[in-house]
Design a protein around this nucleic acid. Sequence first.
DNA 1: TATAATTGACTGACGTATTAGTCAATGAAA
DNA 2: TTTCATTGACTAATACGTCAGTCAATTATA
Lengths: 210, 210
Amino acid sequence: MAVQKKITRAEQKALRPIQILDAAFEEFVRSGFTGTRVEDIADRVGVTKGTVYVYFETKEKLFEAMINHFSVPFHELLGITEGLSGNATDRLLSILGLLYEQIAEDRTTRELTRLVIAEGHRFPDLIDRHHDQFIEPIIAKVDALILEGVASGEFREIPVEFSEIVVAPILTTTVLRLIFDDRRVPTPNKEAFLRAYFDLLLNGLLAKPH
Amino acid sequence: MAVQKKITRAEQKALRPIQILDAAFEEFVRSGFTGTRVEDIADRVGVTKGTVYVYFETKEKLFEAMINHFSVPFHELLGITEGLSGNATDRLLSILGLLYEQIAEDRTTRELTRLVIAEGHRFPDLIDRHHDQFIEPIIAKVDALILEGVASGEFREIPVEFSEIVVAPILTTTVLRLIFDDRRVPTPNKEAFLRAYFDLLLNGLLAKPH
DNA sequence: TATAATTGACTGACGTATTAGTCAATGAAA
DNA sequence: TTTCATTGACTAATACGTCAGTCAATTATA
C-alpha cells in the first residue's frame, strides 16, 4: 500500500479534470470516439458520469480537450535542436534521432497518430492543428538542414520538396507499431535501427554510386 | 439518362451483396465501425435495413465480409514480379514502383489501411490477415532482393532485418494522404517522387560517401 | 396469348438495448 | 451550519436486429 497523502477538497477539484483527461485518452484509444462510453471514462477515474459532465460540456468537447492536453508542444523539441552545433550531417542525424524517440517510441504520440487517422473526418480542426504543429515544423526543419548541407557541400543536391522521404522510416515504424503492437512485428532495437537508418540515408544502397 | 438495361430478378439478387459491400466500404470508411449505421449503408444502396440483414447476419459479419471483399490478393502483384528480368537494382526498383501504385496511389488500399489502424483492436483477425497477406510478403520480397543485390556485388552489405526502411517512403506517402487527403499536403507527382525516392535510396545523401 | 397461382426479395414497424446528457438530492469537508 | 462536489435515477434519442406481411416478377395453366 502506498501512503495516501491527505488531499483537500480544493486540491481534489483541481485534479479532477486531469484525471478525466487521462482516462479519456485510454478509453478513446481503446474504442475510438463513438465506441467509447462516457461512463467507461468515469469508471476509470472512479466517479460517475455526472461528474464528467461537471467538467466537460459534451463528449465532443471532452475529446477535443483530451487531444489538446496530450499534444505537447512539439516546438519545444525543435527548440532544443536550435542549440545543436556541428556540421549539417551531425545536426540532421541528431534531430532525426530525437524525432524517432519522440514519435516512434513514445506511446502517447503514437496513439495520438492513431486518433488523427481514425477520427480526423469527424474533427477537421484536429487535422489542421496536427499539420500546423507537427508535420509542417518537422518538414520545414529537415528542409532547412538539407539545404544547409547542400550549401556546405556535405550533401548532394536532392529535391527538397520530397524531404518527407528522409523522415519516412520514423513514421513507418510508428505506424507498424500502431498496427501490430509488438505482436507480429518486433519492436526494433533502437540503436541498431538508427544505425541502419542513418547508414542507408547517408550512403545509399549501391556499392558504387553512379 | 443512361439506358437502363432490363435486369432479371435473379441477376438483381446476385448483385445485391456486392452493392451492399460497396456501400459498406464507403460508410465504414466515412464513420468507422461503431459510427456507421446499418441504415446508412442500406440507404446508399437504395434498399432498407431489412434487406441488408437478408444477406449479412450482423454488422460485424458485414464489416468482415467487406474487408475480405476489398483485400484483393496481393500475391498477384508479387506474382507479376517473378517474371521480371534484369539485375537486382532494376528489379527492386520495379517492385517498389508497383508497390507505390498499389498502396500509396490506390484509394481502396489506402482506406483499408485506415480501417486496419482504426478498427484493429476490435477485429484481431483483421490484423493477422493484414500481416500475413500484405506486410510479410512485401518485406520478404524486398529482403530477398536486397540479399541478391549484396551477393551480386551491386549493393553494400546492409542489415536485412530493417528492410522496412527501404519501403518506408511508400507507407509514409500513404499515411500522409490518408490524414490530409490532398488538403494540406499536396499529392506528390508520381514520376518526380519516385525519381527522388530511388535516387536517395541508391546513392544516399552524402556527396562523398565514407 | 391471356389469366391465374406461386414465389421470394424486400419492407418497415416494432422490441430491446444502449447511451448521451440532466438535475434534484446528498453528504462530506470547511 | 453552510457550501458544493458528487451522485444516480431519469429522459430522450438512437440503433441493432426481427419478422409477419406485401407485391412485383416469374411460372404454370387454360
